Computed example of a mutant assay.
Amino acid sequence: MNRKKKINQTLKSKAKKANAKLQSSNKPKYIAKADREALAAEADSESYAVDAAAVNSVTLDSESAES
């Protein structure tokens, strides 16, 4: 009886682990803090570049309007 129980226990545990690998998770992938900070800094620099381009285009338009 004890041998059967042990065999069934190991087979069930292997089946459970195999089934767990097949399941997908909705949890987002972990991103390290250093990577998050780098992405935030990159996004800030991009938004600054866009803002600077917008300011330049506005000043160019106002100069052409004055002429």
Rank of each mutant, 00 (worst) to 15 (best):
residue 3 R to P: 01
residue 45 S to C: 00
residue 58 V to C: 04
residue 20 A to M: 07
residue 20 A to P: 01
residue 55 V to D: 12
residue 58 V to T: 13
residue 20 A to S: 14
residue 66 E to T: 06
residue 7 I to E: 11
residue 26 N to H: 11
residue 43 A to W: 05
residue 33 K to D: 09
residue 22 L to D: 04
residue 47 S to Q: 11
residue 14 K to N: 09
residue 37 E to W: 03
residue 28 P to A: 05
residue 42 E to S: 08
residue 54 A to M: 12
residue 19 N to Q: 13
residue 32 A to M: 02
residue 25 S to D: 06
residue 15 A to N: 04
residue 5 K to P: 00
residue 52 A to E: 11
residue 21 K to W: 02
residue 42 E to L: 08
residue 21 K to P: 00
residue 36 R to C: 05
residue 9 Q to M: 10
residue 4 K to P: 00
residue 61 D to E: 13
residue 18 A to N: 02
residue 6 K to S: 09
residue 32 A to W: 03
residue 66 E to K: 11
residue 64 S to M: 14
residue 22 L to I: 04
residue 60 L to I: 07
residue 23 Q to M: 12
residue 10 T to L: 15
residue 4 K to L: 12
residue 55 V to K: 11
residue 37 E to N: 11
residue 59 T to N: 13
residue 10 T to F: 05
residue 44 D to Q: 12
residue 14 K to L: 08
residue 2 N to P: 02
residue 39 L to E: 09
residue 13 S to R: 13
residue 45 S to G: 00
residue 38 A to N: 06
residue 24 S to I: 07
residue 10 T to P: 00
residue 36 R to F: 03
residue 47 S to T: 08
residue 49 A to F: 02
residue 32 A to R: 07
residue 48 Y to S: 06
residue 67 S to R: 13
residue 46 E to A: 10
residue 10 T to I: 14
residue 64 S to L: 15
residue 20 A to D: 14
residue 29 K to Q: 05
residue 24 S to Y: 07
residue 54 A to P: 00
residue 63 E to V: 09
residue 15 A to G: 04
residue 59 T to Y: 08
residue 23 Q to F: 04
residue 60 L to T: 14
residue 12 K to A: 14
residue 16 K to M: 07
residue 40 A to R: 15
residue 57 S to W: 07
residue 37 E to K: 14
residue 29 K to S: 05
residue 41 A to L: 09
residue 12 K to P: 00
residue 33 K to Y: 06
residue 5 K to V: 11
residue 2 N to E: 15
residue 34 A to D: 13
residue 53 A to I: 01
residue 32 A to S: 15
residue 12 K to Y: 06
residue 2 N to G: 12
residue 16 K to Q: 10
residue 1 M to A: 12
residue 5 K to G: 03
residue 57 S to L: 14
residue 13 S to W: 01
residue 29 K to G: 00
residue 38 A to F: 06
residue 12 K to S: 10
residue 35 D to C: 01
residue 27 K to A: 08
residue 21 K to Q: 09
residue 36 R to E: 10
residue 20 A to C: 02
residue 67 S to G: 12
residue 3 R to M: 02
residue 61 D to T: 10
residue 16 K to E: 13
residue 48 Y to A: 14
residue 42 E to T: 09
residue 33 K to F: 04
residue 12 K to V: 04
residue 8 N to W: 03
residue 66 E to Q: 10
residue 7 I to H: 08
residue 16 K to C: 01
residue 56 N to K: 14
residue 42 E to R: 09
residue 29 K to W: 01
residue 35 D to R: 09
residue 21 K to S: 07
residue 6 K to I: 12
residue 19 N to K: 10
residue 64 S to G: 03
residue 54 A to D: 13
residue 52 A to R: 08
residue 15 A to H: 03
residue 35 D to S: 09
residue 12 K to C: 01
residue 36 R to P: 01
residue 42 E to K: 12
residue 7 I to V: 12
residue 28 P to H: 03
residue 54 A to S: 10
residue 35 D to I: 06
residue 61 D to A: 15
residue 11 L to A: 04
residue 20 A to Q: 14
residue 40 A to W: 07
residue 35 D to L: 05
residue 11 L to N: 04
residue 24 S to D: 05
residue 4 K to C: 02
residue 42 E to I: 03
residue 52 A to N: 05
residue 6 K to Y: 06
residue 36 R to H: 05
residue 3 R to Y: 05
